[in-house]
Design a binder for these strands. Structure first.
Lengths: 232, 232
DNA sequence: TTTCGCTGGATTGTTCAACGATCCAGCGAT
DNA sequence: ATCGCTGGATCGTTGAACAATCCAGCGAAA
């Protein structure tokens, strides 16, 4: 997933530059999973929809067993729900799930920002803020959404933890699925543009406590908004 | 996994008591995964060991494809590592992994305890503390270990978040694998018995900030100890 | 009419056998 | 000692098969 598994080039000695690139040839199952992830994020597959093994297998021109593996992976990421002997379905938002998701985000995002981060990582946060501004100017609604995700991803990346990064990546994938573009209008993006700016500034100034408080407040408000939209 | 999916009996009305029990018949793949998880936790399978599909399949009397599914699941939990075309191996501790694991624990455990919890959940924390005391009296080294895991699991459970619970369960499974009994002598358990007591008391007294600080200090020290043991 | 029970069709869960692709150890030639 | 080849083992993927399970529809009974 967001695996930063890049083989570090390890300062090859004078005795020769051995190639360190690992040609990435994702397995077929992996590519199927990737394709499904894409379709989920893009809203092609809506929550609750049933995915039939044979159909997907034929559509993508792969074996049913391969599809099965991809399903298993996505089910592990909570994007699909497996109901034994009935089939797999696109995950749906159950009661309490919104609070649950935001509980995780509060835990890892606030914790990450409170610990600060290297200048590079902070610069990445700043970059996400600017990306948002540009998207706003261009009236690019789509771009606004991904800029915001980049922003929060960059905050978690401050902690330099692979595990936290993948957890956050999964949470963001869930949110893309549940809170799809349809539910996100421009009005929604009104507040947090300047809010992200504030958080980022506080971070750059080393005011970590304040940055954490601002972020926490944002997450709480965001949860409220989402809860209000999705059936109370 | 740690899915608390129990169908809540929902206060069946007078019109009849419809059965709400969902007979759990885990699929074969699930049972294979469970068996492997057990062997990993028990130290039967040591880090770095290679797991050959055909061998496992024959040993457990299932098909190779089924083993494959189980492997995929465990790889998703970071207990196994899949190397394309080479095989799957029991995960090994890479440089930085210890810090990584503890970064996650700091994020979710401290966040959970700082938010407090219902009396029931707090009682569960207390129960884990007492469980540890009893194990200490009985000189039950094994019991001490699981009591500690129950303690930290109960802390995360304060947040009432399914997602946090499963994340924590996975982290604990990783720790069982890496920091196996062999590396845990009685000397190791010396400190935290009274420390858990303190944390729990602070929690019960509603001194959440202090409880969080104590927990954070413990985690930092624990990370240091583990780092010292496992090659610097 | 409503309920019950059955049956047929569709889909899943699992197994098996096969084949190409890839890796690895060994061995011989340079 | 290095290089290159080769054979065997294992993985990745496929396709087909069959039992188990679920679901909708339909007819029989209350």
């Amino acid at each position: 997933m967001a695996s930063a598994d890049q083989e570090k080039s390890e300062h090859a000695g004078i005795d020769g530059a051995r190639a360190r690139v690992r040609m990435k040839v994702p397995s077929v199952a992996e590519r199927v999973a990737e394709e499904l992830r894409y379709q989920l994020a893009e809203g092609f597959l809506v929550p609750g929809a049933k995915l039939t093994e044979a159909t997907i297998a034929e559509d993508l021109g792969v074996s049913r067993n391969t599809v099965r593996e991809a399903f298993a992976e996505l089910a592990g990421e909570r994007l699909l729900l497996r109901q034994p002997n009935k089939g797999v379905f696109v995950a749906t938002l159950e009661a309490g799930d919104i609070h649950d998701v935001y509980t995780v985000r509060r835990a890892i995002e606030v914790s990450s920002i409170r610990a600060g981060g290297s200048p590079d990582r902070i610069a990445a946060v700043r970059a996400a803020v600017e990306e948002g501004k540009r998207a706003a100017e261009a009236n690019d609604n789509e771009g606004l959404g991904s800029a915001n995700q980049h922003f929060h991803g960059a905050i978690v990346a401050l902690a330099e933890s692979n595990r936290l990064n993948t957890i956050m990546a999964q949470i963001l994938a869930e949110m893309r699925l549940y809170f799809h573009k349809a539910t996100m209008n421009a009005h929604f993006y009104s507040d947090w543009l300047k809010e992200n700016e504030q958080i980022c500034s506080a971070l750059e100034a080393g005011e970590l406590e304040r940055a954490g408080d601002l972020l926490l407040a944002y997450l709480n408000r965001s949860e409220q908004q989402q809860s209000a939209i999705h059936g109370e």
